[in-house]
Computed example of a mutant assay.
Amino acid sequence: MTTTKFVLSRLLGVLSVILFAVLVCVTVWQVFTRQVLNDPSTWSEELSKILFVWLSFIGSAFLFGERGHIAVDFVARKFPSAVQKALAVFVQVVIIFFALVAMVWGGYLAASIAWSQNLTALPLNIGWVYVIIPIAGVFIAIFALIDLISIATGKEPPYPDIEEPEEPVNLEDAEDTSQVVLDEGGRK
Rank of each mutant, 00 (worst) to 15 (best):
residue 92 Q to R: 09
residue 92 Q to T: 00
residue 92 Q to F: 00
residue 92 Q to G: 00
residue 93 V to Q: 07
residue 93 V to G: 00
residue 94 V to D: 06
residue 94 V to N: 12
residue 94 V to H: 06
residue 95 I to R: 02
residue 95 I to M: 05
residue 95 I to P: 00
residue 97 F to D: 03
residue 97 F to Y: 02
residue 97 F to N: 05
residue 98 F to K: 04
residue 98 F to C: 05
residue 98 F to R: 01
residue 98 F to D: 04
residue 98 F to W: 09
residue 99 A to N: 02
residue 99 A to F: 04
residue 99 A to V: 02
residue 99 A to H: 05
residue 100 L to I: 10
residue 100 L to Y: 00
residue 100 L to V: 09
residue 101 V to T: 10
residue 101 V to N: 07
residue 101 V to P: 02
residue 101 V to H: 02
residue 101 V to Y: 14
residue 102 A to V: 15
residue 102 A to T: 12
residue 102 A to Q: 07
residue 103 M to W: 15
residue 103 M to H: 02
residue 104 V to L: 04
residue 104 V to N: 04
residue 104 V to Y: 04
residue 104 V to E: 02
residue 105 W to K: 01
residue 105 W to Q: 06
residue 105 W to N: 01
residue 105 W to G: 00
residue 106 G to E: 11
residue 106 G to H: 12
residue 106 G to N: 08
residue 106 G to V: 07
residue 107 G to K: 10
residue 107 G to N: 12
residue 107 G to A: 10
residue 107 G to Q: 12
residue 108 Y to S: 14
residue 108 Y to N: 12
residue 108 Y to M: 15
residue 109 L to F: 03
residue 109 L to H: 02
residue 109 L to W: 03
residue 109 L to G: 04
residue 109 L to P: 01
residue 110 A to W: 08
residue 110 A to I: 13
residue 110 A to P: 05
residue 110 A to H: 09
residue 111 A to R: 10
residue 111 A to Q: 08
residue 111 A to L: 07
residue 112 S to Y: 06
residue 112 S to G: 05
residue 112 S to V: 15
residue 113 I to A: 13
residue 113 I to N: 06
residue 114 A to Q: 14
residue 114 A to V: 07
residue 114 A to N: 08
residue 115 W to L: 08
residue 115 W to H: 11
residue 115 W to M: 09
residue 115 W to I: 09
residue 115 W to N: 11
residue 115 W to Y: 10
residue 115 W to F: 08
residue 116 S to E: 10
residue 116 S to G: 05
residue 116 S to I: 12
residue 117 Q to L: 05
residue 117 Q to I: 04
residue 117 Q to D: 11
residue 117 Q to Y: 12
residue 118 N to C: 01
residue 118 N to F: 07
residue 118 N to V: 07
residue 118 N to D: 11
residue 118 N to P: 02
residue 118 N to A: 11
residue 118 N to L: 05
residue 119 L to M: 15
residue 119 L to Y: 15
residue 119 L to W: 09
residue 119 L to C: 05
residue 119 L to G: 06
residue 119 L to P: 09
residue 119 L to F: 15
residue 120 T to E: 10
residue 120 T to F: 06
residue 120 T to C: 00
residue 120 T to W: 03
residue 120 T to P: 03
residue 121 A to R: 08
residue 122 L to Q: 09
residue 122 L to A: 09
residue 122 L to P: 13
residue 122 L to F: 14
